[in-house]
């Protein structure tokens, strides 16, 4: 559906608006500290906030970038692997015994469903920071904090995505399954060829949201010593014992990452004609 041309701001005007907003921000920064060039080239950190921030950003840009890359990689891999685990979980969750099943089979199916239900309860019902500390310091199964972090994000995200997928499957009209069955498909065929693809398609925007939520929530992995964006920022703050400047910068970096990624996702969603959700809140 194309919106009426009257309700839409022309692209050129939007561009000018954005440029003006950018100029205003630069202007305010300049008014607060006219010696921008001096601040970034200073030998030691300038005393004022704006100068200190510019100095910190300029001097430690490489460290911030390392952290941002680690954060995005962990979030992305965690979401993809989480999705794969969620497929298994939702498969187990949907097992229900029928009258034709032997007693052992019925028992297995109930056990599988209960397991998936329990998994979702445990991983959605406990904070990720506790899960991270539990797997890293508590169990000590992993030799590498980064691998442990990927594991924690994956198993955590899996629980959320499994519920998204279950909702997606439930939201596919039963008429779809009935139509597939009436065409002669077996129940399994009807599920995998007709119901499930639609469920996944409708779940994709929410799964994209999980990715963006992960970009923010992986900050808790600093407890196990992964150098993602927030932990990197804590070290940078420790260099000059100046937290305010470092945290202000990292807030802007997170904002750029989340808005940028949700813009990217919304382009993909428009392309595939999917419903577009708002910027997600945290879970």
């Amino acid at each position: 559906m194309t919106p009426s041309p009257l309700t839409r701001r022309p692209a050129a005007r939007r561009l000018w608006f954005n440029l003006a907003a950018f100029a205003a921000v630069v202007g305010i920064l300049y008014a607060l500290n006219p010696d921008i060039g001096e601040a970034v080239g200073a030998v030691s950190i300038p005393d004022d906030f704006v100068g200190g921030s510019l100095f910190t950003l300029w001097k430690y840009a490489g460290l911030f970038l390392d952290g941002a890359v680690t954060t995005v990689v962990i979030s992305m891999v965690g979401t993809v692997v989480g999705f794969a685990i969620a497929l298994l979980l939702v498969f187990l969750r949907l097992q229900a015994p029928t009258r034709r099943d032997a007693r052992a089979m019925a028992f297995l199916k109930i056990a599988a469903s209960r397991f998936a239900k329990g998994y979702v309860s445990v991983f959605r019902g406990t904070p990720m920071i506790v899960q991270a500390a539990f797997f890293w310091y508590g169990l000590g199964l992993f030799g590498d904090a980064f691998v442990c972090g990927l594991f924690v994000v994956s198993v955590n995200t899996a629980a959320y995505i499994a519920e998204i997928l279950r909702g997606g499957i439930a939201s596919v009209d039963d008429g779809q399954r009935e139509a597939a069955r009436s065409l002669g498909m077996k129940p399994v065929q009807a599920f995998f060829a007709v119901v499930f693809p639609q469920a996944v398609k409708h779940s994709l925007p929410s799964i994209g949201n999980e990715f963006i939520i992960n970009v923010k929530d992986t900050a808790v992995l600093s407890v196990i010593g992964i150098f993602e964006l927030f932990n990197q920022t804590r070290r940078i703050a420790g260099i000059h014992y100046r937290q305010l400047e470092a945290y202000a910068i990292v807030a802007v970096i997170y904002l750029v990452l989340t808005t940028g990624l949700s813009k990217l996702l919304s382009i993909v969603e428009t392309k595939f004609d999917l419903p577009r959700p708002e910027l997600p809140s945290s879970n």
Partner: peptide, 20 residues
């Protein structure tokens, strides 16, 4: 169905622990 099951299993085993 097999592929459907294998994807998550393989990705799980990718986590095979590092050296403690």
């Amino acid at each position: 169905i097999l592929a459907f099951l294998l994807v998550p299993l393989l990705s799980l085993s990718a986590f095979a622990c590092g050296t403690p």
